[in-house]
Nucleic acid binder design. Sequence first.
DNA 1: ACTTACCGTAAGTCATGACTTACGATAATG
DNA 2: CATTATCGTAAGTCATGACTTACGGTAAGT
Lengths: 108, 108
Amino acid sequence: MTYDNAFAALADPSRRRIFERLRGGPLPVARIAAGMPISRPAVSQHLQVLKAAGLVSDEAVGTRRLYSIDQRGLDTLRAWLDQFWADALQAFKTEVERPSRTRKGKRT
Amino acid sequence: MTYDNAFAALADPSRRRIFERLRGGPLPVARIAAGMPISRPAVSQHLQVLKAAGLVSDEAVGTRRLYSIDQRGLDTLRAWLDQFWADALQAFKTEVERPSRTRKGKRT
DNA sequence: ACTTACCGTAAGTCATGACTTACGATAATG
DNA sequence: CATTATCGTAAGTCATGACTTACGGTAAGT
């Protein structure tokens, strides 16, 4: 249950952009920072936050450091959402089944 | 594509707690604020943020205001996550299929 | 009509965190 | 061995946003 960090991590636009950039596969830090409007140290700090949230993993390769997406964080988020999704369906179903003569019409 | 707001909204612990509290069905503001360590106006502000993110919807009932979970926000988040999930799988598969004779060994 | 209940908004305070520049550490290169 | 490349960390600045109290506005109750 570390979706606290996961949500907090993905709340920042720069961090989401970094994360999306890793979709194509592992990348070194300088490579990630290349297409971004912020400095390389800033990217490093963001990567640390993403790593702490279990969203990315790093691997030292020579003097470089390859970062890649870690599925564990994604799975955690998905589990949280799915739980909510099921509950929402349940609530909706309950409301629909109720006759509700005096209810105000809810659009779609 | 408003997952910007959705992630930012769920990044706050108080807001997640409010959101989780609505799993059981619609609730008035005072009722939500009852079990929380923050003031009622604070809860109102949080609800506004959640509403702007498409995560909750409100309905005026007399002098009260019932807030309930809006699936649209959840669907948006899920779509974003699923897209990532598919890409991660794709990248993994590609890497495995590559012979990689001159590659430096990647542990598992 | 007056009072009470329930809620949103305004204004102001204060902590968090997203940046920057500067520096040090390690590995490849010649 | 000296140099260069790549990166993480430290320290400091500055904006954002999460709270509070105070207030006004509408609907229900008597």
